[in-house]
Design a binder for these strands. Structure first.
Length: 674
DNA sequence: CTAGGGTTAG
């Protein structure tokens, strides 16, 4: 019956007095019937016993401390500790808003109803989830509460507030102050408060405070539980104190509480964060012997780490292990494994994993489909790529701008320009955001397909549409111009790039160097090379190739060699540089120069790779007449068994173990005897 | 009650 009355009062509109905060002092009616008193007999009588008027304030009792719960056990005998939530909780909570008057609202409310909020009450409100979104309000409330006469916070209030502040990534200074206050007050530690504090401080990465709480626990005779250890470990790991975490781990192993799967996962995460994936693997392998079985989190943490390292084989290995052991495979693990295989060009394997994913009832997402489409297209199978594109749409997945970009790129590479343009138009008409990458894919395709004007139009459209053009876009159009022989347009765009503040890259230079050589502007090409080096741009194998091929074909083999020799000490010279030159010389029928180059490489004490020998041999065979004019040194090199006596790659038309010496033997009569 | 995580494109 009392309970029913309580409910009625809580829900009745008369209970809520609109605008009461504006009333400087509550003109309470004398019988007090509408007051929100907690419905206990003692409370009711105590308030009714006093006149509620200001001018008799000297007779007022001290404001009553409000507790969060009302003991109504007197009403329910069978259940002796029946606690009912106080109706004041809702009323106070309603006042807690992000407003400048919040604190004065609270004060006048309490003044009006002659109440003080007890330490338990404050702790209860701070601990209730309703404040979790407004940490600022919680903090103000906390500070307001301690202004009440005779009030002192309970430890729980600190702990709840710190929990709120840490879970919303607040300024650590505030928390530091609160921890200092806890320290000064000399509270008695309990196991639940210490756990919560250690978690909060761990999230914030406040290691000093974390360790203080740890010591404080020990002083209070609280033995850390497994949870406490794990919280501490995670706190240390999250703030990159992996070494300390490792020490805690070892202390655990030596003590009463053994590390569990969570402890292992935290430590493994720590090693991975440091990039020490191998060390993480060592721990992982050691788990089984300690009878702790890796779970999906252990595996995913490791797979993620190997993925970041680019070690996709290791990702696959761990994935296979998960399958064998029947560990649940999270969809993110599939994403990483399939993504890795696709990036390695192993699209068939990637597709197989995708299929087994489907068999396990796990649905692929846009990223997985995009990775597969891209990999199929790059592997030359646009048909299969487009099939997957249709399939993902059938499954109700919305291709995003990345998917479209991959599709456009694939269609371009396959020479299906019409379809690529169609796809691009679809994006434009259907609200798919067209970013620089998508533009660039099509500009590239149009350029490679000889539709330079269309490429140029698209490039200009980017500016109209306010899409910022990065170096990729410039490079695409510069390449289109250069390949079409419009070297002046290319150079003009290079200039414009500079004017518009877009940095030229090694690709920009490579395109131009190649284009200039093709136009026989050898000196200008060299100038670009030097400008690039001066700018501190690191050459790539492709840029070497463009330069050395240009120089070789314009008859400046020696100069090319010199440039390459100069760069060799910098350690950036690719092994393929001379190889490329030999290739290009052979292709141009300049076998003698190619052989000379080979001699030079031997003279430098370096080895000629098998495939280069093959190229040389084939060129020699095609040009027996050249052999006749070879000088003695080249002949001796050719006759040198250590140079030639190596199996020739099976990719040639020759059988695997055919040796040049035998070929040379056939033609010995052509040569003057050594 | 703790612990992992976001992938795809030029």
């Amino acid at each position: 019956m009392r309970k029913a009355t309580l409910t009625r009062i809580l829900s009745s509109s008369s209970y809520i007095i609109p605008g009461f905060v504006e009333i400087p002092f509550p003109p309470l009616n004398s019988h007090g019937g509408s007051l929100p008193f907690p419905l206990t007999a003692s409370r009711t009588s105590s308030v009714f016993a006093h006149p509620l008027s200001r001018n008799v304030s000297t007779f007022l009792p001290p404001p009553e401390w409000i507790e969060p719960f009302i003991d109504i056990s007197d009403l329910t005998i069978q259940n002796p500790r029946n606690l009912q939530s106080s109706p004041w909780i809702d009323r106070i909570t309603n006042l807690l808003q992000d407003s400048p008057t919040m604190e004065s609202d609270l004060s006048s409310f309490c003044h009006r109803f002659l109440i003080r909020l007890s330490p338990n009450f404050i702790a209860h409100v701070l601990g209730s989830t309703r404040l979790s979104k407004t940490t600022k309000v919680a903090f103000q409330f906390f500070r307001w509460a301690e202004k009440q006469k005779g009030y002192t916070h309970k430890l729980e209030s600190y702990v709840f507030l710190i929990d709120l502040l840490s879970s919303s990534a607040q300024d650590s200074e505030v928390i530091r102050t609160l921890v200092a206050e806890i320290r000064d007050r000399g509270f008695v530690m309990t196991s639940s408060t210490s756990n919560s504090l250690i978690r909060s401080l761990g999230v914030m990465g406040m290691v000093e405070e974390l360790l203080w709480v740890w010591r404080w626990m020990k002083e209070n005779g609280i033995e850390p539980s497994l949870y406490t250890y794990n919280f501490l470990m995670d706190g240390l790991v999250n703030s990159m104190f992996v070494d300390s975490a490792e020490q805690v781990f070892e202390a655990m192993e030596a003590g009463k509480i053994q590390p569990d799967i969570v402890t292992y996962n935290i430590l493994i995460k720590g090693y991975c964060k440091l990039g020490k994936t191998q060390k993480a693997m060592d721990r992982f392998r050691e788990m089984e012997s300690k009878h702790v079985h890796p779970d999906k989190i252990t595996y995913l943490t490791l797979i993620q780490s190997f993925y970041s390292d680019g070690d996709f084989d290791a990702c696959l290995g761990l994935y296979n292990e998960m399958e064998e052991k029947g560990v649940e495979i999270p969809s993110h693990a599939y994403s990483l494994v399939i993504g890795g295989l696709c990036r390695d060009g192993k699209v068939i394997e990637g597709y197989a994993v995708y299929e087994s994913m489907g068999r396990r009832g796990c649905k692929a997402n846009v990223a997985i489909y995009t990775a597969l489409i891209d990999s199929f297209a790059k592997g030359g199978d646009v048909e299969e790529a487009m099939k997957l594109f249709e399939k993902m749409k059938d499954e109700g997945l919305e291709p995003d701008e990345v998917t479209f970009s991959v599709v456009v790129n694939g269609l371009c590479k396959a020479g299906k320009m019409e379809k690529a343009v169609e796809c691009f138009k679809f994006c434009r008409e259907n609200g798919v955001p067209i970013n620089a990458v998508l533009y660039c894919s099509l500009i590239n395709g149009l350029g490679k397909g000889g539709m330079v004007d269309e490429a140029e139009r698209l490039f200009e459209e980017m500016e109209e549409k306010g899409c910022v053009r990065d170096s990729y876009c410039y490079n695409a159009l510069i390449d289109a111009f250069a390949k079409a022989g419009r070297i002046d347009s290319a150079l003009a765009l290079f200039k414009r790039m500079e004017d518009e503040g877009c940095d030229q890259t090694v690709y920009t230079y490579t395109i131009l160097i190649d284009g200039l050589f093709k136009k026989h502007k050898n000196e200008e090409a060299l100038k670009f090379w030097e400008a690039m080096i001066d700018k501190g741009i690191t050459p790539t194998p492709a840029s070497f190739r463009a330069l050395s091929m240009g120089l070789c074909l314009s008859g400046k083999v020696a100069r090319a060699c010199k440039i390459l020799d100069d760069l060799a000490p910098m350690g950036i010279l690719p092994d393929s540089a001379f190889e490329d030159m030999i290739n290009v010389l052979c292709k141009a029928g300049r076998v003698k120069e190619a052989c000379k180059l080979a001699d030079g490489i031997i003279d430098r004490g370096r080895e000629i790779p098998g495939r280069v020998r093959t190229v040389l041999i084939n060129a020699l065979r095609k040009a027996v007449s050249v052999i006749m004019h070879l000088d003695r040194k080249i002949i001796s090199v050719i006759h040198d068994k250590s140079f030639w006596d190596v199996p020739i790659p099976s990719s040639t038309s020759w059988r695997r173990h055919v040796r040049v010496s035998s070929f040379i033997h056939l033609d010995t009569w052509l040569l003057s005897p050594p």
